[in-house]
Design a protein around this nucleic acid. Structure first.
Lengths: 102, 102
DNA sequence: ATCGTAGTTCGACCAGTGACGTACTACGAT
DNA sequence: ATCGTAGTACGTCACTGGTCGAACTACGAT
């Protein structure tokens, strides 16, 4: 569980995948939380109306689409938004989404 | 077929719906085409690798999400991007997507 | 009136996926 | 060593939704 998880390179991030990842209400919730939480907060501390396994499922979807980066830290996982990559690839997109009325 | 089709008001457009609508590769294709085509081009003139009925399905999805506006014109339908509404609601989002590498 | 063209509607089919519980692994305390 | 906590992996189930063909409607020409 300490092993590094696969993340797409910036160049391999596809807009369809990003949009698909962000289209789910739960995942949008996660992304919104991540954008406000201080870096280093374990993703488990976001409370969500879903089970543990479903949470894993969604974090995985976000990671594989290139929206978040996940790194192991002891028994926890630190999940961070890939702001730099997303802003470089699709300037305006992330802010457009995050500033949307909740 | 001449009757007006229902469109969400600007205030009723939800970001989840917009993202979900844009997450499909075919619909993204349509939106990209609409952004370059001169206004007034019938949507049927975009050639897509799908059947007529599937095209209707996708245009409907885009319309109901608030991404496009559809108006009847004789036997054809004119589909236009709701740029103004989208830009007002989510500044940067649409441009971020349209400028993405194809 | 008849035909062609543009588009919708309906029903069916099937792949994808969000949801869950359970069993499991890994790390850190005690 | 044992236990608790954090998270993953897997199998399943149900629902969504993208796809199609066929039948239909509406408009415009001929």
């Amino acid at each position: 569980m300490t092993e590094e998880l696969p993340h797409p390179e910036r160049a391999d991030i596809r807009i369809e995948a990003v949009l698909h990842a962000l289209a789910d209400p739960i995942r949008l919730m996660i992304v919104r939380e991540l954008s406000t939480l201080p870096e280093g907060t374990p993703c488990g501390s976001i409370d969500l109306p879903i089970s543990k396994s479903t949470r894993t499922h969604h974090i995985r979807a976000l990671r594989e689409a290139g929206v978040v980066r996940v790194r192991p830290e002891g028994t926890a996982r630190i999940t961070t938004l890939r702001r730099d990559d997303l802003d470089a690839l699709y300037p305006g997109l992330l802010d457009g989404i995050l500033n949307a009325p909740h």
